[in-house]
């Protein structure tokens, strides 16, 4: 039996995915910094560079995933960032556009949120 793709036309998962990516990115950054500072830099003096680079990498991956989702929402769902008419019809096509629209908005929001999460490593160069 062939399973349907998780995120495809009409799947509602596209609305959940950006938030999940943001949360996973947040946790990863937190864990990376916490573990590094607890193990390597117990006296607080060790540099934070390895953390900075790892977080930068994780951030690029997260932003890439969100970008891919946004393209999906735009292409396959026919969503657009700004809508000029009310989406209210109870039709499959309308629902798809609505999902695409909301997913695009969420992608924009979470792009900003992921950048916010990553900002501290640009500012700090020591564990404390």
């Amino acid at each position: 039996m062939r399973y349907p793709r998780l995120i495809d036309d009409r799947s509602i998962w596209i609305m959940v995915a950006p938030s999940v990516i943001w949360a996973a990115h947040f946790l990863l950054c937190y864990w990376i910094a916490a573990i590094w500072c607890a193990k390597e830099a117990a006296d607080g003096s060790a540099p934070l560079q390895p953390v900075t680079w790892t977080v930068a990498g994780v951030t690029l991956v997260a932003l890439g995933l969100i970008w891919a989702l946004a393209r999906h929402a735009w292409g396959r769902y026919g969503g657009s960032l700004f809508i000029t008419r009310t989406i209210a019809d109870d039709r499959a096509q309308e629902r798809k556009h609505f999902l695409g629209h909301v997913a695009l908005l969420l992608c924009a929001l979470h792009t900003l949120a992921v950048i916010f999460t990553a900002l501290p490593v640009l500012v700090f160069d020591r564990c404390w």
Binding site: G44, L112, F116, L119, P120, V123, F124, R126, W128
Partner: peptide, 21 residues
């Protein structure tokens, strides 16, 4: 809001760096 919040976060972080050990 996005611009203001980004600015606030940045200044907050810089302040924090200034008062950290």
């Amino acid at each position: 809001p996005a611009v203001v919040l980004t600015g606030l976060l940045a200044t907050g972080l810089l302040t924090l760096r200034g008062i950290a050990a």
